[in-house]
């Protein structure tokens, strides 16, 4: 299964460890939230379900370098909230990857909520994903991604002499 970064370029997939499986520190690996909480060793990352209770993990999330959030269906939008919470409230600054059956037409929403890479199935329309991410020049909301919001641009223009 390929993985893509937020520009749509191919990157390596991460290993998803079953609970209890020994972790190889040299392989980027995700474990479940329950597993993470039970472990006292440092681990690379966590794979969160869409109903994850992030508060359970305390301060540990901030120290992770990779994390994933899993969609159950593309219509279930909870991962968007989880991603924003990870970024804004739990101090996660690493690579955040979307898992599960999200669709290419959600690309920009994912990036704007803080996802930085995507685990996709074979046959996934990568071109459509790239297009979607790059499509809009402007957005209204305060963003997590790099582009300024329309509100911020208006402010900046008004401030110009």
């Amino acid at each position: 299964m390929p993985a893509l970064d937020h520009t749509g370029a191919r990157v390596t997939s991460w290993h998803v460890a079953a609970d209890g499986e020994p972790i190889n520190p040299s392989t980027p690996t995700l474990v479940s939230l329950a597993h993470l909480i039970g472990m006292n060793k440092a681990v690379a990352g966590v794979l969160l379900e869409s109903d994850a209770d992030l508060d359970q993990a305390g301060a540990r999330l901030a120290n992770l370098t990779i994390a994933g959030v899993k969609f159950t269906t593309f219509k279930d939008g909870r991962p968007f909230s989880i991603a924003r919470l990870l970024r804004t409230r739990h101090g996660f600054t690493g690579d955040l990857r979307a898992y599960g059956p999200f669709i290419p037409d959600q690309g920009a929403f994912l990036v704007r909520c803080g996802f930085s890479s995507f685990e996709v199935v074979d046959g996934f329309d990568e071109a459509a994903l790239r297009k979607n991410i790059a499509h809009f020049s402007y957005n209204y909301q305060h963003p997590l991604s790099v582009t300024a919001s329309i509100v911020a641009l208006r402010q900046a223009n008004a401030a110009r002499p």
Binding site: G77, F80, F109, L110, C113, F136, Y140, I150, V151
Partner: peptide, 13 residues
């Protein structure tokens, strides 16, 4: 209207 238009977090409620 502007805040809710293609809101990235709330488009799959």
């Amino acid at each position: 209207r502007q805040w809710s238009t293609l809101h990235p977090e709330f488009s799959f409620l």
